[in-house]
């Protein structure tokens, strides 16, 4: 049932690209901060001013990568780790919240480090971001952690939110594996509403509707694309 998405989501681990992007002062500060995990509540908000915020790789920035370094250095696991992440997220500005959301895959047993044993415990942070209207937070929430843990109904609604908010679907992790017949039906219904309203239908829902929707819904689209709706 896999759907081919045009472009995989940004790499989950931005840390390897970080050292080359830091100034000597930024690197020294980060090394010192990493060695003081108990001070993370004071250090986490200051990262952007100390380490910078230039684009790094994919859609990541230096401050996000540096914050990922601090989070993965926390000597915490399971519920204790989830509590600290929740606190940092709750007290964070949008840049801090994005950094927490983007670091979740690194703290998950299925992620590259896999040491945090986070499991489903960070799901409330995702749900909060998905309830909001800030596209940058919605996008940050829909990384590999969301793909691995969001229940089907929540995942489908999140994808639909992206379509409404004009977040390109190639930014949503795991769509190829998670897209199902029900999501295709929802997207086809969305397309119908747009067609009736005389509004454009985003092209990037096409592969899902084509491969998974009922023949009736898929027939909305011609063989070459969107029939008469663009």
């Amino acid at each position: 049932m896999a759907v081919t998405t045009p472009n995989p989501s940004a790499p989950a681990d931005p840390r390897p690209a970080l050292p080359a992007a830091l100034t000597p002062q930024g690197r020294a500060w980060l090394d010192e901060a990493t060695a003081r995990p108990t001070a993370i509540r004071a250090l986490f908000p200051a990262v952007r001013r100390r380490c910078g915020h230039t684009p790094l790789t994919g859609h990541r920035t230096v401050d996000e990568a540096a914050r990922a370094v601090l989070l993965t250095a926390l000597p915490l696991r399971g519920p204790a780790l989830a509590d600290e992440l929740t606190r940092l997220h709750h007290h964070g500005d949008p840049a801090e919240q994005r950094a927490v959301l983007r670091a979740l895959p690194l703290l998950d047993p299925g992620g590259p480090d896999g040491a945090g044993d986070l499991g489903d415990l960070a799901l409330p942070l995702l749900r909060e971001a998905l309830r909001g209207n800030d596209n940058t937070l919605i996008e940050a929430a829909l990384g590999p952690y969301a793909a691995a843990h969001l229940p089907d109904a929540v995942y489908r609604q999140a994808v639909l939110s992206c379509v409404f908010c004009e977040i390109p679907l190639d930014r949503v992790a795991g769509l190829g594996d998670r897209a199902d017949v029900e999501l295709a039906r929802m997207l086809a219904d969305f397309a119908r509403e747009r067609i009736v309203a005389g509004r454009a239908v985003p092209e990037d829902i096409l592969p899902i509707v084509r491969s998974l929707a009922s023949a009736d819904a898929a027939a909305l689209y011609g063989t070459d694309g969107l029939d008469g709706v663009t």
């Binding site: 915020h53 230039t54 684009p55 859609h59 920035t61 401050d63 996000e64 949008p94 840049a95 994005r98 596209n135 940058t136 996008e139 940050a140 908010c165 004009e166 454009a200």
Partner: peptide
Amino acid sequence: EGNSIRRGGA
């Protein structure tokens, strides 16, 4: 904030 967003929407 260094992240790509669409301003204004379509």
